[in-house]
Design a protein around this nucleic acid. Structure first.
Lengths: 359, 359
DNA sequence: TTGAAAGCGCTAACAC
DNA sequence: GTGTTAGCGCTTTCAA
């Protein structure tokens, strides 16, 4: 009651106390003491006192004045997906160290929501954007580009827009995975993906079809509607497997599809890899620990995060001339992590051959 | 080059165009037209024009002036943990609808980092805090309380601080789970937890020991150091199981411990529930889909989120007098979701007794 | 070398 | 009913 409000220290308080002007304090605080030829003695006194009272400038006032917020807006598809969660976490750490804060939101792949978020970030005057673009947000991204706000896309890109991006060579990943399955002796490899036409999804599909085409084999693709209705997706996969009993291997184009797929396979009481081999795009705790462990096409998460933040911070630091600079477009490689789910058992129940002890 | 910068519309532009004063525009925009007795005609014109040009006030200027940012800081332990991710997501949605934005960060249970984040939020002038408190941040929370910034803790609380909080009755959850295992005929139930002394962890342990005490049974508890070193944790659990071969059931106090536990059990080639039954605190995709499916003590995630945001927004709306109001402290119940991992098989290999059909 | 002062865009008390 | 104006706390130009 006695003390009303412990008022924050202001730059004016500092100046008054030290009997210098606020300009001096501000200049020192912003590391411009030298270029403004402020005496070392004064600079030292300012720094010492600021430190003593723990003065922190008011970010809001600073932002209003400078037009910079030191905030980066991060728009991902779904922050609860471990892939995005991990990338976001790494980006956040790196940005933090360099004085930037991240605010992030999920679009749930809903263009409407993506647009809202982008608008919100714009209103909040973020200094830069990191975006996992949903379909149908070309216009919003174009607007951002026109304002020359530094922006990096990742995971996928917008084909007609000259943006920076960091993506993964999913085609190569699924190509390799398909060859691996064929080499293991699986001959009816099917591909389960979403109905999305986003670049990353199309690439993953392409790798698969290319591998089969090279062997003159016909692809078998099931595209599932993206939906939050878990049961619907599981049922669809069950149905697909039942309608195509010849299938002996499955590649899922993304981690959550694989999770539904595992459930579908379990419900059909099919065994992995005996009845059907499985490979998932994207790794996940579940796949490492599942019995049997699931082979995955792993994405280089750390590298994605590092590239994204490096490109963005670089642009933030050196605002490129509007037209002269070319966008930076990075393509990273996947890694096929082979586990039990895609390994052909040596002996089959019906056909037992002579076995050797050394595998 | 021709057009320098497409300047944002300002409140002044609106006023000029409509030939009214900026005060009028501001008042109308803030819904204070009526109380300032501005004519409906003028109000309508303002609204129409604002809408037409898509004017958005500058949040930063507004914040500087009003001292309100409409941002809530959310500090969780680990945003990539599905429990926290889901709660955060729900909180975000609800807050968004009511005009608040959430900025969130993970502490990784590191008090140092928690302190940094709280400081950062403070510097950013958040209007309210939602905190999953790590140990050792009593002081920072006390500071926040002293400034009367609305704050809600969840998942655990700080025993000596009169804060709002929303927690779950973990003791009841583990108590019930333990009884369930005993009822199934498991007689050596062990409890694997962390070395944390946070309230929620202690409560979970208490429920277990209480259930055993009631049966005059001795508890068997293993406390593991919280670490990012996955292999270390798995090895510790393996060792614990090997050193105590009589154990026939395990309760893990949190979802990530369970995940490590499942790995340990798999490596020891033990079968669930034949060799050892398993129950996890917290649900997870993995547990639903694991073979066998894992019984869990599920937390009421939606209810947690709703209570947290309701309490916070309520305080934000009606700033309570400093001392008069009592903190709101909510205790929610868990739900035991019984799956295969805790069900005793009817017949045992060694001891087959007369069985009745009705259990 | 340092200080005075003009804003950044908005709100709201107060004057008319 | 509506307009004027004084800030919110900071940066930075320009004059001294």
């Amino acid at each position: 009651m006695s003390e009303k409000v412990k008022k924050r220290t202001l730059i004016l308080d500092i100046a008054n106390h030290l009997e210098v002007s606020i300009a001096t304090v501000s200049l020192v605080l912003n590391g411009k003491a030298k270029q403004s030829r402020i005496s070392d003695a004064v600079a030292q006194r300012v720094l010492a006192y600021v430190n003593e009272v723990g003065y922190k400038p008011n970010h809001i006032a600073k932002s209003l004045r400078t037009g910079k917020t030191h905030v980066i807006g991060l728009v991902v598809e779904d922050i609860s997906n471990p892939f995005f969660a991990t990338v976001a976490w790494m980006i956040e750490r790196q940005a933090f160290e360099r004085g930037y804060r991240i605010i992030y939101c999920s679009t749930d792949n809903n263009p409407e929501k993506a647009r809202e978020l982008l608008t919100m970030f714009h209103e909040r005057h973020v200094d830069g954007y990191i975006i996992v673009p949903s379909e149908g947000i070309e216009e919003e991204v174009t607007n951002i580009l026109r304002e020359h706000t530094p922006t990096v896309l990742f995971d996928r890109f917008l084909p007609n827009l000259p943006t920076n991006y960091v993506i993964v060579d999913g085609a190569q990943g699924t190509y390799q995975a398909t060859l691996h399955l064929l080499a293991q002796g699986f001959s009816r490899v099917a591909f389960v993906t979403t109905d999305s036409v986003q670049t990353q999804m199309e690439a993953r599909l392409d790798g698969y079809t290319k591998a089969l085409a090279e062997q003159a084999m016909a692809p078998k693709v099931r595209r599932l509607a993206v939906t939050k209705d878990t049961e619907k997706v599981i049922a669809d996969i069950q149905e697909f497997l039942q309608a195509n009993p010849e299938i002996d291997a499955l590649i899922f184009s993304t981690n959550y599809l694989s999770i539904y797929g595992l459930e579908a396979i379990a419900r059909l009481k099919m065994r992995i890899p005996d009845d059907v081999a499985v490979i998932s795009y994207d790794d996940h705790d579940l796949f490492r620990l599942y019995t049997p462990a699931i082979t995955v096409i792993a994405q280089p998460i750390e590298s994605i995060a590092r590239n994204v933040i490096d490109i963005l911070l670089d642009e933030l630091k050196h605002p490129h001339a509007k037209d002269t600079s070319l966008p930076q477009q990075i393509l990273l490689q996947t890694e096929l992590v082979v586990r039990q789910s895609s390994i052909r058992k040596k002996a089959k129940t019906t056909v037992v051959r002579k076995k050797t002890l050394h595998s």
